[in-house]
């Protein structure tokens, strides 16, 4: 088990958001966390990353207890986080945004170099000197993923990547998720887009009002119209 979340409870101030959320992700898997708007997907990913640490419960990454660890240390263990709202640094160029994610410095063992990023995202190469604030939504989504990859994560938390993207861009994104899977990167994806998730994930969890309501294989979920109707907007 690469990631093990055990019965976490997370709060924003006094409001209790996550209730005993547990989930597990095996190395090399792509797992999707589905749920409606406000269900608790982002909060779950932020709890894992240490951005909003859970009050109780534990998060284990590769056997290490990382509950309450500061995010930069979590990231240095190999956990990459791609925020839902992209958070491209607006005053930095595309290249500088990538540079900032390059936390291993000049470590020769890095897999993700500028060249490889530009090979997969030729558009980012064309835009290398444009300021982050002047990118389209699709370009921002590619850049935010690429920026996190520059840190060479072994595990990627992807928060609603397909949100607000045009269908063609969503297809490109799907292709790139397949590339990352082939690279051996484990992925925990949060999504509302069921069709997209069914295509790229191996396993699924459904979260609703901060509770995990379903877990199972993608094939089982695909057949389960009852569950899909109840918890997802399909």
């Amino acid at each position: 088990m690469q990631l093990e979340v055990q019965a976490i409870n997370t709060f924003y101030g006094l409001s209790h958001i996550l209730f005993d959320v547990s989930l597990e992700v095996d190395k090399g898997q792509a797992v999707v966390l589905l749920g409606r708007n406000g269900a608790g997907k982002t909060t779950t990913l932020r709890s894992i990353m240490g951005l909003t640490p859970p009050k109780t419960g534990t998060v284990k990454f590769q056997g290490w207890d990382i509950t309450g660890m500061v995010p930069f240390k979590v990231a240095r263990l190999g956990l990459g986080f791609v925020p839902e709202d992209r958070r491209i640094f607006p005053d930095l160029t595309v290249k500088a945004n990538l540079d900032v994610g390059r936390t291993r410095g000049n470590d020769k063992s890095v897999k993700w170099t500028y060249e490889r990023i530009y090979m997969h995202f030729p558009r980012l190469k064309e835009l290398a000197n444009r300021r982050g604030g002047h990118l389209s939504g699709g370009e921002q989504q590619m850049l935010t993923i690429a920026r996190t990859l520059m840190g060479d994560p072994t595990f990627l938390l992807l928060d609603e990547p397909s949100e607000g993207l045009a269908p063609i861009i969503v297809r490109d994104l799907g292709n790139f998720i397949e590339v990352m899977k082939k690279e051996g990167i484990t992925i925990l994806l949060s999504e509302q887009n069921v069709k997209f998730s069914l295509k790229h994930a191996d396993r699924a969890y459904i979260v609703d009002s901060g509770h995990i309501k379903y877990q199972g294989s993608i094939e089982d979920l695909e057949k389960d119209d009852e569950v899909k109707k109840r918890y997802l907007a399909v």
Binding site: M49, R87, D99
Partner: peptide, 23 residues
């Protein structure tokens, strides 16, 4: 890179931290 990190801190320190930077 030091300058990039400083300018990134101005916008989103939390995001920068999640990228592995000791903000």
């Amino acid at each position: 890179r030091a300058g990039n990190l400083m300018r990134a801190t101005v916008s989103y320190p939390d995001t920068l931290g999640a990228l592995g930077v000791n903000v």
